[in-house]
Amino acid sequence: MDLPIYYTRAEYIETDTGNKVSRRATISGPQNIILGGKTIIASGAIIRGDLRRTGPGHAVVISLGRYCLIGEGCVMRPPYKTYRGNFNYYPMKIGDHVHIGANSIVEAATIGNHVEIGKNCIIGKFTIIKDCAKIADNTVIPPNTVVPALALFAGSPGRFVEDLPESTPEMVEAQTKQYYTRFQPLPQER
């Protein structure tokens, strides 16, 4: 197994379900954000839960699955549009085992399970990323793109490069689980 990634205990808040959220992340409207458990939100990330759908009652803005990672300096923001003359933000749904690299900007509508997004990516509004897809580093995905399952996308604008092997879900699952176990507080603080 790889070496552990240490963090100082003072910097991260750990919830009962094992989510680790950095105190240096900006999270607005936390009542509208759902974390599935064992999800890591690194420092400097911005998650906008305040941009919610108008209307009465409770609205989920961003939901993240299990074993997700939001890298340093990421911006997660729900997409917006006008529909039948009404302006609204629309919820963003992210599946399990999704890793998002550092400094990426995500305004997707849906991201499936086992998706890997590289560093410095720009994911446009209302993008749909299907299961087990991979977005290479520095990719710019234009708005309203649909990334099919088991595809690798790269470039600006992001284009299909190659198919990924069918073993991808198992590989990504193992990788994300391992990352979570590697991510632990410094030994002297335990």
Partner: peptide, 22 residues
């Protein structure tokens, strides 16, 4: 026209919602 309409509505929405959370 549609683009500007979207922009105007967006600004209006943010003016209303941002003070509630920030």
């Amino acid at each position: 026209v549609q683009e500007m309409d979207l922009r105007r509505k967006h600004a209006e929405y943010l003016r209303e919602m941002l003070p509630k959370f920030n």
